[in-house]
Design a protein around this nucleic acid. Structure first.
Lengths: 344, 344
DNA sequence: AAAGCGAGGGAAAGCGCTTTCCACTCACCG
DNA sequence: CGGTGAGTGGAAAGCGCTTTCCCTCGCTTT
């Protein structure tokens, strides 16, 4: 396999120059120049032989590559899709190749892929998606990250993972507060939360932001006003139904991501027959592309997902300093049709 | 960069064995066995030194790698998200790494990424997303594909690209027919189509399937009943509005993908004030995850997207034969709430 | 005019790994 | 008992490229 490839050696021969010269013409890193005549000959030969350089060989000789890894939970999730799109756009400008790995939400896989990327001698990896509160998994990940960096690679996170890592942080706490206050301003006093798995840091922060805001507003979140579901559409549906059965007095619910919110909307309508927003207001989180197309159009906390992907790639290019770098991205509350004022 | 890595040599030394033996223990391809005692020592040493193999070096020595490329139009598009998810799941089982490249719908980029993957000595590449009818671009792509295969790589397409390529074909024609007949069976006689860019093969086939079905039903599609828009939500909205302004007598419209259909639904409602499905029925194409969450829930032609991604990876693993391989995947019409019977 | 210099070219030493040979050790058999 | 061959271990030749070091050459300096 892959035996038939044309080598630089052959190009050099055909051009009547040395291997070194051919290398300098075709992949030269600037420091050395090659005379006009020879340069022309080499380029012509490469063209003619349809030479394609051998990236692994280059990576070996240079001890670095143009590959950057992107580890996400799920490629089909619009949240990660948006981040990935931003990252790939930025990567393209830097002529980097992006290698995406999906963990399907298994922390073990995350570790495995990080190792694999390390084996690839990827120049950097972006860890997108929330870290978990599982101390053991976090420690092993930290160890692997340290190893990766020791090998000279860069690691940047999108979303909180730990204080020593370069990260693009999105305003999860801030967004949670924004949503809670937005609901409050609409007159809502009995607000519930449909949360995701508590071990996800993102979820914790969002919930925490909402909780604090509500407390400072003088209406602390009751324990039975929070319910947990899977971070999927179905999880959102089930949890929302459970929440409103337990607390039928709630007039508004904050759902901690849009995909779950889509499920919640369906559950409230189809399973419970509750009108949104007349009977209960719903606010989502993320503002994924389809949020505006749900009916009622979903009010949600917008996170600059694509920008986060781009920021991550930019961060990658800066050498890591002594201080961990942080880029903070703000959230914004987008009120659409799933929220209404209440007299209650 | 990447200088600090532990090498196999060091592991061998620490274990007191030769490089060859260490290689056989750690990456051995089965043909040779190593004695119990030495094997144990090597494994212990690797563990202790935290050895991580150098994939580029392996790729160089073996002349093959574990990377497979996946070229899509847009990672944020749920259509590709689903295909990618299927592919990654299958790849994982085979311990392959998937490298995703997004072309953002520029044919030139597709070529560039294919070259780049070839340079990486990727074991295979999956070309997802429709080919184009542009003969020049297709020819240059074919040439690059031939080069890739000459180097020993495999190429598999998802969606029609050319008769000589191994491909996973989805029933685009069949699906178009299904949708048309479905609408017909609901009593619709004046049916329009919101199409995507005509140079996309997928679009052509879908349109062609609908056209044929309608013709055989005795109600050929009038030229002014077809309108073209961008393959995006906004493109769908604009085109649908244009179509129904030009042909207000239409009682049903087939939109050639779900993302566009979401836009069409919005346009018909907000711009034109036309009730769906009472005044006009809408059928989409693909059945992306959010289709059921649109209101009215979108009737659509379901394509087995994840299965297609998986099938592509499986196809990759089979050696390419003399005959190009084809895997055909069926479409299915899913009737939800955006379609209704009409009295005609 | 001798020395110094910068620029362009090539030889060759790796980069870290796989794999082909070759060497050696033991049964085991004729 | 030499011969045979299976089972193991190691030496070493690459894989295709980058890069250091050295050499030559044509000029400018003093």
């Amino acid at each position: 396999m892959h035996t038939a490839g044309v080598t630089l050696q052959q190009v050099a021969q055909q051009a009547g120059v040395s291997l070194a010269t051919a290398s300098r013409v075709l992949h030269g890193s600037g420091s050395r120049t090659v005379g006009e005549e020879l340069r022309r000959r080499v380029e012509a030969a490469a063209q003619e032989l349809r030479y394609v350089s051998n990236a692994p060989a280059q990576a070996l000789a240079r001890a670095t590559s143009d590959v950057v890894g992107l580890i996400v939970h799920d490629v089909a999730d619009p949240y990660f899709g948006a981040i990935a799109a931003g990252a790939m756009r930025a990567a393209r400008e830097q002529r980097l190749m992006v290698m995406i790995a999906a963990t399907f939400r298994e922390p073990g896989l995350e570790l495995e892929y990080l190792r694999s990327l390390r084996a690839q001698r990827a120049r950097a990896v972006i860890l997108a998606g929330s870290g978990t509160a599982d101390a053991d998994a976090t420690a092993r990940l930290a160890e692997e990250i340290a190893g990766f960096e020791a090998d000279g690679g860069r690691v940047v996170c999108v979303g909180e993972r730990g204080p020593d890592l370069d990260t693009v942080v999105m305003a999860n706490r801030g967004g949670g507060g924004l949503a809670a206050r937005g609901l409050w301003d609409l007159g809502h006093r009995r607000i519930g939360v449909v949360s995701g798995p508590a071990e996800l840091l993102t979820v914790r922060h969002r919930l925490d932001g909402a909780r604090r805001a509500l407390r400072s507003l003088g209406a602390p979140l009751a324990p039975d006003a929070v319910t947990v579901g899977d971070f999927t559409r179905e999880g959102g549906r089930v949890a929302a139904v459970r929440l409103l059965r337990a607390r039928p007095d709630l007039t508004a619910v904050l759902v901690l991501n849009d995909v779950m919110a889509a499920g919640a909307l369906a559950g409230l309508r189809d399973d419970l027959g509750l009108a949104v927003p007349d009977r209960v207001s719903v606010v989502g989180f993320d503002d994924v592309p389809f949020a505006a197309d749900l009916r009622p159009a979903l009010s949600t906390v917008r996170l600059p997902l694509e920008a986060a992907g781009e920021a991550a790639v930019r961060l990658l290019l800066e050498p890591s300093g002594d201080e961990p770098r942080r880029v903070a991205l703000a959230a914004e509350l987008v009120l659409r049709d799933s929220t209404a004022t209440t007299v209650g």
